[in-house]
Nucleic acid binder design. Structure first.
Lengths: 136, 136
DNA sequence: ATAATCCTGTGAGTATATCTCACATGTCAT
DNA sequence: ATGACATGTGAGATATACTCACAGGATTAT
């Protein structure tokens, strides 16, 4: 429960996300334009991405590489939740809020199957990939 | 071992670190100037901070708030190193360190208030603070 | 008391990073 | 060939960050 809270905190500018995901800025913005991700913004309108955003981007990338188009990705991936849309932006007075993005396990299972070709229950490649960056 | 590698990955620009630590850019740069932290740089010379850097900054902040000066913080904290093992090298600032060391008042303060029950560099309280952001 | 030192604020001027918008291009599938 | 899709690229503007210098309050030393 409390586990996932900070994964929603907006931390990274697009430059870092580009390196983390090996996607171009154009691609990242394009995916946002199509509501695949909804990164937070600074007061100056700069995008700020959370761990969850990076995870989603890695999933998106994997699907793209499999030839899935945007519409297909929309079908397969969890829709961006209301809660995620108001990602936690860090401000001087931010008291971190508790929120839980818990629903649509069905979507998650579908996504995992499509992405990894594995049976549900297995950790997806993508999640494993992201964990290489900050979990271990 | 592989555990710590990613904690050392440069991810955050200074603006994010300011919010995470509630330190001013001036302070952060000043601490770097005195080698308390050594953030990475982008190709364009922008600072990039890792989780470890943020952790160190939170430790530094806690010490500052206790009235410890830079020299004292240097004494108490683990030296910055790429490898866990680092030889004690005599550097140009050794002289300064020695002079500060002669301040028995400071030394006693550090020993009593900061290293009580702990080994230097293991500031569990502060690490707990960082975990509020990422681990929970 | 005066001087020196430490730490942080602030401003100027410059450089880097990111933003939006528009147009171009390659790849498919009609 | 036409068109939709996904991405590249460039221009112009804004935001963020950089270094350097000076200022000043608080402490510490002379």
């Amino acid at each position: 429960m409390g586990d996932e809270i900070r994964r929603n905190m907006a931390l990274f500018p697009i430059g870092i996300v580009m390196k983390l995901t090996d996607l171009s800025a154009r691609q990242i913005r394009y995916y946002e334009q199509h509501s695949l991700i909804v990164p937070a913004r600074t007061s100056g309108n700069q995008r700020l991405f959370s761990f969850n955003d990076v995870e989603r981007l890695l999933e998106i990338k994997a699907l793209i590489e499999k030839g899935v188009n945007i519409a297909g990705i929309k079908q397969v991936m969890n829709p961006v939740s209301k809660e995620s849309e108001e990602a936690t932006v860090i401000t001087p007075d931010t008291e971190v809020r508790r929120r839980e993005l818990s629903d649509s396990q069905l979507h998650r299972l579908l996504k995992q199957e499509l992405v990894s070709g594995k049976r549900p229950g297995q950790v997806s490649l993508i999640q494993g990939e992201l964990s290489r960056f900050f979990n271990k």
